[in-house]
Every structure is written in C-alpha cells, then in structure tokens.
Simulated scan of single mutants.
Amino acid sequence: MKLHTKVDCANAPKKELIKNLTVQFVTYDLDTAMAFMDDNVVWTLVGDSPIAGKAQFKAELQKMSGNKATELTIHSIITHGKEAAVHGVMTMMDGNRYGFADFYEFTSAKGTKVKSITTYIIHKKNDSITG
C-alpha cells in the first residue's frame, strides 16, 4: 500500500499511534489494531448504529476486509489530552476513493487504549476536492 503523509509524528507518540492504527484499519491488520482497543470500545460509523465491544468491532471490520486500501493519504492528525482526530483519503482495491475523518477517545490521557471511535466517510466521485 502507498502511504502519503506530511504529518510529523516525531516526539508525538499518540500521533504515531493514530497513524499506525489508520494504516492497520485500512489494510485490515485487525489483530495488531485490536491490541490497542479497550474491551468495551464503541465504534460509531456515522449514519449506522454504534458497534459496542472489541469482538463486535473486529467482526464488523472483517466483513469489509475484502476491499483493502491500495493508497492512503493522511492530511492531518491532531491530539489533545484523551482525544485525537485524523483525516485523509483512501483508495480501495476496487478503485473507489473515500474521504474520511476519525475521532478517537482514549481511556486516559496516556493514550494507550481506545475507548471510542467516531468515523465520518464519504465516497469521492471525482478528484475536484483535495481534502
């Protein structure tokens, strides 16, 4: 997978974690990603019902795993306290492109376990929007 990012993660462990989790999610490296999820993690894909619990979250992602990303562009990662956000664009194996934004809440400011993720995603019908 091609990865494009200008995000500087030096001396920013939470930014590095969010970058790595984003790559793991779009390539469906779920076993690695799940190590950073709280057992009671809640994933809200905006427009759908929330998914509660690590096992349910992983199962839902596995349903999507047939269409991995071939290219990922991360535009920015912002962290503060117990929260983080990332946004970018991913191109999938089937050629579809999606703009996304993920908002993370950690169980503590240390940022080792993810308590919740809220995902906004939109299908990009053309390349006129770069963000």
Results as ranks from 00 to 15, higher is better:
V41S: 00
A109E: 15
V23W: 13
K110L: 10
E71S: 10
V41D: 00
A69K: 07
D102E: 12
T70C: 13
N67V: 06
T32K: 12
R97M: 13
K68V: 13
I51L: 04
D8V: 11
V42F: 00
Y120W: 11
L30C: 09
I122W: 06
E71Y: 11
I78L: 14
T73N: 08
W43I: 01
D48Y: 11
T73F: 03
V26A: 02
L17D: 01
H75W: 14
A55Q: 13
T5Y: 02
T130S: 14
I51P: 01
I78W: 11
D94I: 03
K68T: 12
M34Y: 06
V7C: 01
E60A: 15
A109I: 04
I122A: 13
G111M: 03
V41I: 15
M1T: 13
T27N: 12
A52G: 08
K115C: 02
W43A: 01
S108N: 10
F100W: 14
M90T: 07
F103N: 05
M90G: 11
A10N: 06
K15N: 06
S65P: 05
P50V: 02
K124S: 10
T70D: 12
K68E: 07
G53Q: 10
M34F: 01
N67G: 03
V26H: 12
V23E: 11
V26F: 15
G81H: 08
T119A: 14
T22R: 10
V86M: 05
K125T: 15
E83S: 00
V41N: 00
V42C: 01
G95Q: 11
K125G: 14
K58P: 01
D39M: 04
N67Y: 07
K110W: 02
K15F: 05
A69H: 07
L72P: 04
D127W: 03
P50D: 09
G47A: 11
N96K: 14
M34E: 08
Y98W: 15
A12R: 05
V46N: 11
D102Q: 04
L3Q: 11
S128V: 09
I78Y: 10
A84T: 12
V46I: 15
M37Y: 14
A35F: 05
L3I: 15
D29I: 02
K14E: 03
